[in-house]
Amino acid sequence: MVDNWDALWRILLLGAAAYLALIALLRVSGKRTLAKLNAFDLVVTVALGSTLATIVLSRDVTLLEGLAALLMLIALQYVIAAMAVRWRVAERLAKSDPRPVLIDGVFDCEALRRERVTRADVLSAIRSKGFGDLCDIAAVVLETDGSLSVISHEHAGSRSALPLVRDSS
Rank of each mutant, 00 (worst) to 15 (best):
V2C: 05
W5D: 05
L13M: 12
A17T: 14
L22P: 00
L25R: 00
L25W: 04
K31P: 08
R32F: 14
R32Y: 14
K36L: 15
K36T: 15
L37Y: 08
N38M: 11
A39V: 14
D41S: 13
V43F: 15
V43M: 13
V46K: 08
A47Y: 07
L48Y: 01
T54A: 15
I55E: 08
S58G: 06
R59T: 08
T62S: 07
E65I: 04
G66D: 01
M72I: 02
L73T: 03
L73G: 00
I74W: 00
L76T: 10
A82N: 03
R86D: 07
A90T: 00
A90E: 03
E91H: 04
L93N: 05
L93S: 05
A94D: 03
A94W: 01
S96P: 03
D97K: 12
R99I: 07
V101C: 09
V101A: 03
L102A: 10
V106D: 02
V106G: 05
R114T: 10
R114K: 13
R116H: 13
T118K: 04
R119V: 12
R119M: 13
R119E: 15
D121P: 01
D121E: 12
V122I: 08
S124Q: 05
A125Q: 00
R127H: 14
G130D: 10
G130A: 13
G130R: 07
G130K: 04
F131D: 02
F131R: 04
G132F: 08
D136Q: 15
I137K: 07
I137W: 11
I137D: 12
A138T: 10
A139N: 05
V140P: 03
V141W: 05
V141L: 04
E143V: 07
T144H: 12
L148T: 03
S149P: 05
I151K: 09
E154D: 07
H155S: 09
A156C: 11
S158E: 15
R159Y: 11
R159T: 09
S160C: 13
A161Y: 06
A161L: 10
L162D: 02
V165N: 02
S169N: 10
